[in-house]
């Protein structure tokens, strides 16, 4: 299973980076989502997989019994998911604005910088 997930993570990273290298800015957003998934799965897998055992103590137990999935990694990933969601929303708006200002989603047409309308408007 670890091997399978490791290969899956590698594939997600590869696709994510492939999209990152495209000229379309909207693709950058998709790549951001894909890379977040891959990164979260990397942490999740590297810490060791435990099938079906959540880090929950049953009623009356002083601690979750037996081997359970690592809760610290989960806490890390949980906030990572929510934060990357917030950042994604910000990035969407940023990309949208970039698109509106330049009238294109092609990164190559946005360069060369310096004579963009942004600078002219004194911002």
């Amino acid at each position: 299973m670890e091997l399978l997930l490791a290969v899956g993570i590698g594939a997600l990273f590869a696709v994510g980076f492939y999209m990152l290298l495209r000229r379309s800015v909207v693709r950058l957003l998709l790549s951001f989502v894909c890379l977040s998934l891959a990164a979260n799965l990397t942490i999740f897998t590297s810490i060791g997989l435990q099938r079906g055992r959540a880090a929950l103590a049953r009623a009356g137990e002083a601690a979750p019994e037996g081997p359970v999935a690592d809760p610290l990694a989960q806490a890390l990933i949980l906030t990572a998911i929510v934060i990357s969601f917030g950042v994604l929303a910000f990035a969407m708006v940023l990309v949208k604005r970039l698109y509106m200002v330049h009238g294109t989603e092609d990164l190559d047409l946005m360069e060369p910088h310096g004579d963009s309308p942004e600078e002219g408007s004194g911002r």
Binding site: G16, T45, S46
Partner: peptide
Amino acid sequence: AAIASAFGLVMTALVLAVLSADPMTPVS
């Protein structure tokens, strides 16, 4: 695609390397 695949391969190897490393007592 070639560069991205190479990177994916390294990440796969990295995950496996971490899993094969000596187990430590986790903080958790």
